[in-house]
Structures are given as structure tokens and as C-alpha cells.
């Protein structure tokens, strides 16, 4: 296994809600709490979870596009979380992002060529003379002809725009790309194309991906490791195979049992969760999943379960799970 490219320790993000004439802090949204993980060079690390569970916030905080409220993000020996905009600039080249919505990710007033030239010229990655060749290669990398350089974003389809967005990230010659739901907004047929493109580029340029998604089938297909998030916390983190073969956290199990089965005759043991996701404004004490967990006990309400390694590389934050094979408790009947 390669060395960690980025080490994330106890990353936190709170959004304070201020009210009243003097902006007193009325409440805070706990978007992300104590996120700890290494991102290994060359891997695809996926984050899955429901909407609002903090997976995108994690990506934004790692890149310091949202300032973390606490914790550390170590890259090349530097804690990115402490850097301001100017301090981040030299690292921005290496760490890129592709956004979800291909329709709003490109400046409508710039041609594709201008949009792609911007980072190249700004970071001095090519001279003005080398630029046309560089643009052609960049567009070819994402499967577009060089004619697109003179087009405006509104003339392109969603899939084409997403290719341009990927090309823009590649223009910086990065090592790490956050794919923030990068394919969720696309048609299913286009999703597969973009996904394959991302995988080809990863191989060609030795890229590391943080892949944020909610489509478990996609995640299973492309990931090396998968983190499952619930209400701002990492519930389970495991190699993709282990996670899909032996999900340990009760939330992961419920999530996986919700994946539709292609074979109508296959036995469906869907585990339905009761209730709604609690508000991150006022998250439950102890284990954040205890309000909906079939295994919840008093301990779960009182103490936060640590993310424990129960099998090689397989970590779970659940009081009930002590090893990869045993779940200590029986479900509580409601």
C-alpha cells in the first residue's frame, strides 16, 4: 500500500447561525465532526451517505474552500486547515475539485478555451506560445475536439460541460481531485462515460480521488475504500470489498439493504429505518444514530462510539460491534 497523500485528523465544521441585532450565536449546525482518515496516494476514496450527512462539507473542508472549524488536514507536511487564501495558493494546483452541477460550474461569460487557459497561465504551466497545443491536448484528454475551445458553456450538453469541468481541474496538473457528486446530475448513459473517463485519467495521470456520491452501485464499482457518513460523522470506513461483503455498522447495513436488486426473484431482506434523520442543529447525544438504530442501548445514548479497527483496514463506530464477525447485541424490539 502507498503512503498517505493527505492525512485528515479530527476535521470539524460548524456553521454558526447568528441572530438578533448584535449577531449573537443562536445555534450551530454540526455539519462535520471528528473526521479522521488518511487518503492514500493513487486510491479512490469514496464517501457515501444521505443528503446533508456532511460528505460534501468534508471535501470542501479538505480543500479549505470552506474553512474548517477544527482539526487538521496534512498535505506535504503542511496543515492546510490553518492557511488563509494566500497560503493555500501554492497547494491549490495539486488539489482540485469537480462539482455536481455541470450547468453552473462554468463561467457563462467565458469560452471553454478561456476557462481552461486561466489556470494554465495563472500558475505559469505553459507559455502563451505553448497554450494552443496544451489546450488541444487537454480537450483530447477528456474526449473533446479542439473546436470546443471557442464555444460558450450554454452551447454544450451536460456531459460535455462536465468533461470541460474535468479538463479545467486537469489543467492544473493536480495530484488529487475531489469529485463532489460529479456524475449525479447526469443522464445514466452519460454517467457511465464520465465515470470511465475519470478512471482512465486516474490511470494516465496517477490521480487520487475523493469520490463523493450517493449511488452505492457506482461506489462499489470504482472505489478502493469507502467511508459511510451519518449526520456529520464517519460511521464505517473499510475497503470497498469488505464494506459491501460484510457491512458492520447498523446504518451501513440499512443503507446497503436499500439498494434495489436487479433480480426480482432474489430474496429481499430490506431493513427499514424508522423516523427521520435528526436535525444537525441539535444532533443526538452519544452515537448520532441511536434514535433510529435497532440495536440502541443506554451506552449509545450516553457516549460517542470511537471509530475502532475491527478487522484490517475496517473501522466501525459502533458500541455493538467489537469484531468483524460478532455483533454483541440483539435488536431491541420497539
Amino acid at each position: 500500500m502507498n503512503a498517505p497523500l493527505i492525512t485528515i485528523e479530527n476535521l470539524k465544521k460548524r456553521f454558526d447561525i447568528r441572530m438578533g441585532a448584535f449577531g449573537e450565536k443562536a445555534a450551530s449546525v454540526h455539519a462535520l465532526d471528528d473526521f479522521t482518515a488518511d487518503i492514500i496516494e493513487g486510491e479512490t476514496f469514496s464517501l457515501v451517505g444521505e443528503s446533508g450527512c456532511g460528505k460534501s462539507t468534508t471535501g470542501f473542508c479538505i480543500l479549505n474552500l470552506q474553512r474548517p472549524s477544527g482539526g487538521r488536514v496534512i498535505y506535504k507536511g503542511t496543515d492546510l486547515a490553518t492557511l488563509d487564501e494566500d497560503g493555500m495558493r501554492p497547494f491549490r494546483r495539486d488539489l482540485q475539485i469537480v462539482f455536481q452541477d455541470p450547468y453552473s460550474t462554468l463561467n457563462p461569460r467565458m469560452t471553454i478555451g478561456e476557462a481552461l487557459s486561466e489556470p494554465i497561465l495563472f500558475h505559469g504551466l505553459a507559455t502563451k506560445a505553448e497554450l494552443p497545443a496544451r489546450l488541444t491536448r487537454l480537450l483530447a484528454d477528456v474526449g473533446l475536439s479542439q473546436r470546443f475551445a471557442s464555444r460558450y458553456p450554454h452551447e454544450l450538453s451536460g456531459g460535455q460541460r462536465q468533461r470541460v469541468a474535468i479538463a479545467r481541474a486537469l489543467a492544473c496538473e493536480p495530484r488529487f481531485i475531489v469529485c463532489d457528486e460529479a456524475i449525479s446530475a447526469l443522464d445514466v448513459s452519460v454517467q457511465a462515460q464520465i465515470l470511465n473517463l475519470l478512471l482512465d485519467l486516474q490511470e494516465k495521470y496517477k490521480l487520487t480521488y475523493l469520490f463523493i456520491a450517493h449511488d452505492l452501485a457506482v461506489v462499489r464499482h470504482i472505489s478502493d475504500r469507502v467511508g459511510v457518513m451519518y449526520l456529520g460523522r464517519l460511521a464505517e470506513l473499510a475497503p470497498a470489498q469488505a464494506l459491501f461483503a460484510t457491512p458492520l455498522h447498523p446504518y451501513t447495513r440499512a443503507l446497503l439493504s436499500a439498494v434495489p436488486e436487479a433480480n426480482p426473484h432474489a430474496a429481499q431482506t430490506r431493513q427499514r429505518l424508522q423516523g427521520e434523520v435528526p436535525s444537525p442543529l441539535n444532533p443526538p447525544s452519544g452515537c448520532r444514530f441511536h434514535t433510529r438504530c435497532p440495536l440502541a442501548r443506554d451506552t449509545c445514548r450516553a457516549t460517542v462510539p470511537p471509530l475502532r479497527e475491527v478487522a484490517p483496514g475496517h473501522r466501525v463506530a459502533c458500541h455493538a460491534v467489537t469484531s468483524a464477525t460478532t455483533t454483541n447485541w440483539e435488536p431491541v424490539s420497539a
Binding site: 453552473s104 460550474t105 462554468l106 495563472f122
Partner: peptide
Amino acid sequence: RPYVTAARALGL
């Protein structure tokens, strides 16, 4: 808007 965040991510 995302394209402004993207510009920030580019380091501009």
C-alpha cells in the same frame, strides 16, 4: 455560484 468556487479552487 459553483463557477466562482471553482475559480477559488484554481487558486485565482
